[in-house]
Design a protein around this nucleic acid. Structure first.
Length: 400
DNA sequence: TCTGGGGTCCTAGGACCC
DNA sequence: TCTGGGGTCCTAGGACCC
């Protein structure tokens, strides 16, 4: 989907079309505040100059999506709000409306599934579709079917998308970016040398910032540069598995199937604080946040019908270092109190000296709740009073 | 005034078992 | 005096993706 989060907001506020708009950042429900002020008017008639601007933004968020006019200023996804504010202070900022975005996500995916049933979920705004056995799926190299999907999504949602059609997922993903926004690109196997090799290495889905930097150090900049290396050389420099994969990817080889069903591996909740917190000095605040995270993970598990056996925590320190600890329990759980107890034990094994900017709670080793035989009732809670989390951990603060 | 939140997968060492 | 081999599970960290 093209600029998905931003496009969803533009459906609600069409008067912002053509303006630089960024989505992201805040817990501040700025749009609610504006809507209150103009409660007598339809949303589409709130004047654009009533919306909050990036230059007035305060907080530690990042940008989730920028509209194309905003991108012209160099603003993009994952960029810190403060940095973006320097590049485009006049951009309008809106918070993410997850419920609304999820609603549109479900809609566009179901539109696709009605046309082509083999669909692999790749997050909220992206899918892989298997055209192979769809009637007419091969006409004009798949372009006809791609057009039908595009048109159907637009009619159902008013949103545009970009589609890449290719012999495999790897090339299709790259092709989908060729004609953004609202474009279709068909890439055949024999087009790899002319259309894929000139691209920067980072365009391969699976080569991120670290591998890009290493490739640059080795004087490899384009996908063609990688393709020109022997598999042995790539294995020597990147390891058996990643080296081989990189060679195949550069040659456009990918035999991964379109996977239509999968089970979740873990569920987690995490939060970055508005200011860095200290385990001792901000004990009460941290304790409340910690309990809340455990409660929310437990709620997620229950709502989706899963139980888990590995409980973990994640800390991010003020210097952005990350620490994780986890523990695997004898029995599966979806109970907030059990999760909190185990996570509290994990907390005792980590350095709580430096200030923290993020705290997270994760439950892994998931199984469907209905696939796990009922377990004997745990010992009554009275046997072990609920620990005051972050209490007693002050003694560890000296280790910083 | 840097740097969200929710995920998956991989690697590597150690414990433990046969 | 020298020190198997294969396998699984657990834990911590990190790369990467949307």
């Amino acid at each position: 989907m093209d600029a998905f989060f931003a496009s969803v907001e533009l459906l609600r506020y069409p008067q912002l079309k053509g303006l630089p708009v960024v989505i992201g950042g805040g817990r501040r429900r700025v749009d609610d505040m504006i809507r209150e002020r103009y409660a007598d008017r339809p949303l589409a008639q709130i004047p654009p100059d009533a919306f909050p601007l990036l230059k007035d933004y305060v907080g530690r968020g990042v940008i989730t999506t920028a509209t194309y006019p905003a991108r012209q200023f160099g603003v993009g996804s994952a960029m810190g709000m403060m940095k973006a504010a320097k590049l485009c202070p006049q951009a309008i900022v809106l918070p993410v409306d997850f419920d609304e975005v999820r609603r549109f996500s479900r809609t566009f995916k179901s539109v696709i599934r009605e046309i082509a049933p083999l669909v692999e979920d790749r997050g909220i705004d992206e899918v892989y579709i298997d055209f192979t056995d769809v009637p007419g799926g091969q006409r004009e190299g798949g372009r006809v079917l791609a057009r039908l999907i595009q048109k159907s999504i637009f009619e159902a949602t008013g949103l545009t998308c970009s589609i890449g059609v290719a012999p495999n997922k790897l090339i299709a993903k790259m092709a989908s970016e060729f004609e953004k926004p609202n474009g279709i690109s068909v890439v055949h196997e024999q087009d790899v040398q002319t259309r894929i090799w000139p691209l920067p290495v980072r365009k391969i889905n699976g080569i991120g910032p670290k591998s890009e930097a290493k490739l640059h150090r080795l004087h490899l900049h384009t996908i063609g540069d990688i393709a020109a290396q022997t598999p042995e050389w790539l294995v020597d420099n990147f390891g058996q598995s990643y080296g081989r994969w990189m060679h195949d990817a550069a040659w456009g080889r990918d035999d991964r199937p379109v996977v239509t069903e999968s089970e979740p591996v873990s569920m987690s909740r995490e939060t970055t604080f508005e200011r860095d917190l200290h385990a001792v000095r901000d004990r009460a605040e941290l304790g409340a946040i910690f309990t809340d995270l455990c409660t929310r993970v437990a709620g997620d598990l229950r709502r989706k019908g899963y139980v888990g056996r590995t409980i973990g925590i994640k800390l991010r320190y003020e210097d952005f270092r990350t620490a994780t600890r986890d523990v695997t329990l004898e029995e599966y759980t979806d109970e907030a109190a059990t999760i909190r107890r185990a996570a509290g034990q994990c907390l005792k094994r980590v350095d709580l000296g430096p200030r923290l900017r993020l705290l997270g709670v994760r439950v892994g080793k998931l199984a469907r709740a209905d696939a796990i035989p009922a377990q004997p009732e745990a010992a009554p809670a009275a046997a072990e009073p609920t620990p005051d989390l972050f209490h007693g951990l002050g003694s560890a603060s000296g280790t910083g």
